[in-house]
């Protein structure tokens, strides 16, 4: 692994060193493709699992139950063993026709031309602003990803007594991070009449001793410098205030697809993902996409469909999404290899 990009050309450039990008890179090397570069903007490879320190990860790939960080390390080691080159601190800023990438790197702006490019930039949660939530813009408002990266990577916490908004799986993952970090959420609230996840997971709120309020919507965040309360309303229109020092907005995943959105590639506006064909190939055939950045349209007949993290339907079985992204990375890599060999 290195921080210095020396190449100007390569066979395949993979944007993003998460499970999808790393498994694709490994597969491409194993299929005999010569120069395979994984470009990662962070100072560390591994993607989201780096800061999801809870199991289960790795069932499909390594036939064992791993925590996120050890799973991420294993993915990186496997890729390096296969001869993949991972270059860190490389932020792709622009995609152009024929696989021409502009890259911001600590040594300055660079151009790289790849015969094929794989977009594997992942997903994130929707922040407060894009949800158009009312109220003050105080400190202590964040997503699960922020909580987890702050705690698992920096051993810091953004709040002590937050209100948790949402009841997706990731919301419960957030509760377990809170418990580990000594954070005691004061409430978990859900707009709908049932939690997004199905029985029995939502009983987890009892285990975490966090009261769950259904049919409850946040209508205002209060706080000058830091959050001090939220106003909520229930189905009857009854309003009340819950004292807290933060608001954790969980879930409502959205592809991290800004690069594609800003480029010549076609976007599927329904999902926010780049539009792809049955081989996960984008509107410019030099580009492919895999992993969670690629959310299939509800009506698509995409070869493999990946739920955004978990949904109500794939539970309570322990289907780990990272494993699916890893799997999709592998299959897409096989198509890219076939394409490069003139066989697609």
């Amino acid at each position: 692994m290195t921080d210095v990009l020396k190449h100007e050309n390569c066979d395949v450039a993979i944007i993003g060193a998460g499970p999808a990008g790393l498994s694709a890179a490994t597969t491409l090397k194993r299929a005999g493709i010569e120069s395979v570069l994984v470009l990662e903007r962070e100072a560390e490879a591994g993607g989201i699992p780096r800061h999801c320190a809870h199991p289960p990860y790795g069932l499909r790939e390594y036939k064992r139950v791993l925590t996120g960080p050890s799973y991420a390390k294993k993915l990186v080691a496997t890729a390096l063993n296969a001869g993949v080159q991972i270059v860190l601190k490389q932020t792709i800023t622009k995609l152009e026709a024929k696989g021409v990438l502009t890259i911001a790197s600590p040594e300055g702006l660079k151009k790289l031309t790849a015969k094929r490019v794989l977009l594997a930039t992942g997903i994130r949660e929707t922040p407060r602003s894009a949800r158009l939530v009312s109220g003050d813009r105080a400190l202590g408002i964040c997503n699960t990803g922020t909580l987890q990266s702050m705690y698992y990577l920096k051993k810091m916490v953004p709040f002590r007594r937050p209100v948790v908004v949402g009841t997706e799986i990731v919301s419960f993952s957030a509760l377990s991070t809170c418990k580990k970090a000594g954070i005691q959420p004061v409430a978990m609230i859900e707009e709908n009449q049932r939690p997004t996840v199905r029985w029995p997971i939502h009983h987890a709120t009892r285990v975490f001793a966090v009261p769950l309020f259904l049919n409850t919507r946040i209508i205002k965040i209060l706080g000058k410098d830091r959050v001090h309360a939220v106003q909520v309303v229930d189905l009857n229109g009854d309003r009340r205030e819950i004292g807290c020092d933060g608001v954790l907005f969980t879930g409502q995943f959205t592809p991290e697809s800004a690069l594609a959105r800003m480029s010549h590639l076609e976007l599927d506006y329904e999902t926010g993902s780049p539009a792809v064909d049955q081989f996960n190939r984008c509107s410019d055939p030099a580009y492919y996409a895999a992993g969670n950045v690629l959310q299939p349209s509800p009506d698509s007949d995409n070869a493999i469909s990946i739920p955004i993290y978990y949904t109500a339907d794939n539970l309570p079985q322990p289907v780990e999404v990272a494993g699916q992204c890893w799997h999709q990375g592998r299959i897409t890599a096989e198509w890219i290899a076939d394409d490069l060999n003139g066989k697609l």
């Binding site: 800061h51 994130r124 949660e125 922040p127 407060r128 602003s129 894009a130 964040c142 997503n143 990803g145 922020t146 990266s149 702050m150 990577l153 920096k154 810091m156 953004p158 991290e256 800004a258």
Partner: peptide
């Protein structure tokens, strides 16, 4: 667009 999701830590 991420409002600190990736960089707050």
């Amino acid at each position: 667009r991420c409002q600190g999701f990736y960089c707050s830590a």
